[in-house]
């Protein structure tokens, strides 16, 4: 098992101290080679679940086991390290660093994990080549199309060879063709033994997933 989520609850306090249950008692497990999709409308708690699963947001209850580590039983620094070494993130907005080129963007996680090496740079070049971005290697993100940017973001997520990839609406800003390309890469990662947790409101994406959970009001409704 790569990731085990059990009994996760998370509430936000909104106006007049009224709590909003963003995630309400959610559990799931993802193994090697699995692509699991969580599908649901905006505001149903998908992103909150993904941030909690990725070690970025403390849950009110429940636990996240990544490999053999409970993510919220370790220190913040250890969690940062774990995230740098084992988790890849892809977001709808790409969040590329605008003032460095594509190769540097792909390599940037190596600063957090302190893992830069010439072999890592070689891997970065291979990923860039694999994602058909070789001709863009010295370009800045602003010079790329949206599809290309998302592929760069995907290459960045994969540079440290994570055991699991978290993707939050990865095709939300892409046209159908580019969306298909990106989804193919993501499912390719799963086929090669990686685990993927993909959250989206786009029902079409679930076709490539081994399992799809529908989420509403912080709960899986088809579990």
């Amino acid at each position: 098992m790569v990731l085990s989520i059990s009994g996760i609850k998370k509430s936000y306090k909104k106006v007049k101290n009224e709590a909003v249950k963003a995630v309400n008692d959610v559990s799931l497990e993802i193994g090697k080679g699995e692509l699991v999709a969580v599908n649901g409308p905006s505001g149903c708690g998908k992103t909150t679940l993904l941030l909690i699963a990725g070690g970025l947001l403390y849950p009110d209850e429940g636990e996240i086991i990544l490999g053999d580590t409970n993510l919220y039983d370790i220190s913040a620094n250890q969690r940062d390290k774990k995230r740098a070494e084992n988790i890849g993130f892809v977001f709808q907005q790409f969040y590329l660093v605008p003032y460095i080129n594509i190769l540097e963007n792909v390599l940037i996680p190596s600063i957090g994990s302190n893992s830069y090496s010439s072999s890592l740079e070689k891997r970065a070049r291979e990923l860039i080549d694999q994602f058909n971005l070789s001709h863009r290697i010295h370009h800045k993100p602003g010079e790329l199309s949206t599809g290309e940017r998302q592929r760069v973001a995907l290459a960045r997520a994969l540079i440290n060879e994570p055991s699991i990839l978290f993707a939050d609406e990865p095709t939300g800003n892409l046209d159908d063709d580019n969306a298909e390309v990106v989804l193919n890469y993501i499912s390719g990662f799963a086929k090669e033994g990686g685990a993927v947790l993909l959250v989206t409101h786009d029902g079409r994406i679930g076709k490539q997933a081994q399992r799809t959970y529908k989420m509403k009001d912080g709960r899986f409704i088809n579990q």
């Binding site: 970025l56 969040y95 600063i111």
Partner: peptide, 16 residues
């Protein structure tokens, strides 16, 4: 802000 967010998400520590 978003750059800081993604850097933290991909494993940058606070001190970095």
């Amino acid at each position: 802000k978003h750059e800081i967010g993604i850097l933290r998400a991909i494993g940058f520590r606070r001190h970095q």
